[in-house]
Structures are given as structure tokens and as C-alpha cells.
Deep mutational scan, measured.
Amino acid sequence: SGEEFIAMYTYESSEQGDLTFQQGDVILVTKKDGDWWTGTVGDKAGVFPSNYVRLKD
């Protein structure tokens, strides 16, 4: 389980282990570690910068 966040911006990365997503995607955040959080979008999982998302209303 985790908290749902909304992507405010598209995040694209070629780094292994990074979670890429489109603006407006719902991200289920499973771990918060400083500026880099872990989460899932659909069947993808990985880390992403926390300043790209906001808490879902």
C-alpha cells in the first residue's frame, strides 16, 4: 500500500531503475527517501524526483 500522487510534469529518464511517467499520471508512492521517492505506475516501478509530483486530492 502507499499514497497516491499526481504527476505535475512528465519525467523521462534512461537510467536503470528510474520510474518514467507522463503529466497527469497517478503514482502510488511506496517509499519516500529524501528527494528521490519509490513508486509505481501501472506495472512499472522505480525511483523518481519527488518535486515532480503532488498529493492527489
Score class of each variant (00 low, 15 high):
Ser1His: 09
Ser1Asp: 12
Ser1Gly: 13
Ser1Thr: 14
Ser1Phe: 13
Gly2Trp: 07
Gly2Ser: 14
Gly2Arg: 07
Gly2Tyr: 09
Glu3Leu: 07
Glu3Gln: 11
Glu3Asp: 05
Glu4Arg: 07
Glu4Pro: 05
Glu4Ser: 08
Phe5Gly: 10
Phe5Met: 08
Phe5Ile: 07
Ile6Ala: 07
Ile6His: 04
Ile6Gln: 10
Ala7Ser: 03
Ala7Val: 00
Ala7Lys: 01
Ala7Trp: 00
Ala7Arg: 00
Ala7Thr: 01
Met8Ala: 13
Met8Phe: 02
Thr10Cys: 04
Thr10Trp: 02
Thr10Phe: 04
Thr10Met: 07
Tyr11Ile: 01
Tyr11Lys: 03
Tyr11Leu: 09
Tyr11Trp: 09
Tyr11Met: 09
Tyr11Gly: 03
Glu12Phe: 08
Glu12Pro: 06
Glu12Asp: 11
Glu12Ile: 12
Glu12Gly: 08
Glu12Trp: 12
Ser13Met: 01
Ser13Pro: 08
Ser13Asp: 03
Ser14Ala: 10
Ser14Lys: 12
Ser14Leu: 12
Glu15Val: 13
Glu15Gly: 10
Glu15Trp: 08
Glu15Ser: 14
Glu15Thr: 13
Glu15Cys: 09
Gln16Lys: 15
Gln16His: 14
Gln16Phe: 06
Gly17Ala: 09
Gly17Phe: 02
Gly17Pro: 05
Gly17Asn: 12
Gly17Tyr: 05
Gly17Cys: 12
Asp18Asn: 10
Asp18Glu: 13
Leu19Phe: 06
Leu19Tyr: 00
Leu19Cys: 04
Leu19Trp: 00
Thr20Phe: 03
Thr20Arg: 09
Phe21Arg: 02
Phe21Pro: 04
Phe21Gln: 03
Phe21Ile: 05
Phe21Ser: 02
Gln22Arg: 13
Gln22Met: 12
Gln22Thr: 10
Gln23Asn: 05
Gln23Asp: 07
Gln23Tyr: 08
Gly24Arg: 02
Gly24Ser: 05
Gly24Pro: 00
Asp25Arg: 00
Asp25Lys: 00
Asp25Trp: 01
Asp25Val: 01
Asp25Phe: 00
Val26Lys: 12
Val26Ala: 11
Val26Thr: 15
Ile27Lys: 02
Ile27Val: 13
Ile27Leu: 07
Ile27Tyr: 00
Ile27Pro: 09
Leu28Gln: 13
Val29Lys: 03
Val29Pro: 04
Val29Glu: 03
Val29Met: 00
Thr30Ser: 06
Thr30Pro: 02
Thr30Ala: 07
Thr30Asp: 07
Thr30Met: 08
Thr30Leu: 07
Lys31Phe: 05
Lys31Ile: 05
Lys31Asn: 15
Lys31Thr: 08
Lys31Arg: 09
Lys31Leu: 06
Lys31Ser: 14
Lys32Glu: 10
Lys32Met: 15
Lys32Pro: 07
Lys32Ser: 06
Asp33His: 09
Asp33Tyr: 13
Asp33Lys: 06
Gly34Asp: 06
Asp35Arg: 09
Asp35Glu: 13
Asp35Ala: 12
Trp36Val: 13
Trp36Gly: 01
Trp37Val: 03
Trp37Gly: 00
Trp37Met: 11
Trp37Pro: 03
Trp37Asn: 02
Trp37Ala: 03
Thr38Gly: 09
Thr38Val: 10
Thr38Glu: 13
Gly39Cys: 03
Gly39Val: 00
Gly39Gln: 00
Gly39Asn: 00
Gly39Ala: 02
Thr40Tyr: 14
Thr40Gln: 14
Val41Ala: 14
Val41Gly: 04
Val41Pro: 00
Val41Trp: 04
Val41Gln: 11
Gly42Val: 03
Gly42Tyr: 04
Gly42Thr: 02
Asp43Val: 11
Asp43Pro: 10
Asp43Thr: 14
Asp43Ala: 12
Lys44Asn: 03
Lys44Ser: 08
Ala45Trp: 12
Ala45Gln: 10
Ala45Thr: 14
Ala45Val: 14
Ala45Glu: 14
Ala45Lys: 05
Gly46Asn: 00
Val47Asn: 08
Phe48His: 02
Phe48Met: 02
Phe48Arg: 02
Pro49Gly: 01
Pro49Arg: 04
Pro49Leu: 02
Ser50Met: 09
Ser50His: 03
Asn51Leu: 07
Asn51Gly: 12
Asn51Thr: 13
Tyr52Met: 09
Tyr52Arg: 09
Tyr52Lys: 04
Val53Lys: 00
Val53Leu: 06
Val53Gly: 02
Arg54Leu: 07
Arg54Tyr: 14
Arg54Ser: 04
Arg54Lys: 04
Arg54Glu: 14
Arg54Pro: 03
Leu55Glu: 10
Leu55Asp: 07
Leu55Gly: 15
Leu55Thr: 12
Leu55Ala: 13
Lys56Phe: 09
Lys56Cys: 14
Lys56Met: 15
Lys56Gly: 10
Asp57Gln: 15
Asp57Ser: 12
